[in-house]
């Protein structure tokens, strides 16, 4: 294995959690999430030449990984939507901090599946503490457009989570 390959894999090991989160945001079943996870790593490796060491790996990685997820083509577009199981009671009735957070994320990922690909990217950048300007710069849109789209995505998410009978 070359030094470059080792260096790349070390970066990926450090950031694999983020790639996994992106896969969960864009695909609703586990098999497709695994495929997308692999596709993102493949595209990151292919684009690795374009990574300039003076910038942060994570900044570069977010952009390439999200673009790969946005351009990812679902194997079968006509496939019926995933039918979700009821959220396990152990999580649903949990009062502890961990259970509450788990429950929130569960509802959040379910609701996210109904947003479009660009809205998902905007929500991702927002959760990673990017400003409106940074979101706009990464997507190639204006700061104002990023702000409007983020507000719309948040409102839609709230509605979708409410539809699931949950609120937080």
């Amino acid at each position: 294995m070359s030094t470059k390959e080792k260096e790349f894999l070390a970066h990926i090991e450090k950031h694999k959690g983020i790639i996994h989160k992106i896969s969960k945001m864009y695909m609703d079943n586990e098999d497709e999430q695994k495929d997308l996870f692999q596709e993102i790593i493949f595209q990151l490796w292919k684009s690795y030449e374009s990574f300039k060491q003076q910038s942060q790996f994570s900044t570069w990685m977010y952009r390439v990984a999200l673009n790969a997820a946005i351009l990812y083509y679902k194997k079968d577009q006509r496939k019926p939507k995933t039918v979700y199981e009821t959220i396990p009671e152990s999580i649903a009735i949990g009062e502890g901090d961990w259970e509450v957070k788990e429950l929130q994320l569960e509802h959040f990922y379910r609701a996210l599946q109904k947003l479009d690909k660009i809205e998902k990217a905007i929500v991702f950048y927002h959760l990673e503490n990017y400003s409106h300007k940074e979101i706009g710069d990464n997507l190639g849109i204006t700061e104002g457009n990023a702000r409007v789209k983020l507000n719309r995505a948040k409102t839609r998410l709230k509605e979708l989570i409410k539809e699931q009978g949950y609120e937080f």
Partner: peptide, 12 residues
Amino acid sequence: LNRLSFTTKDSL
């Protein structure tokens, strides 16, 4: 093809 390190708009 496949310049994913561009902005999303430029890549698309």
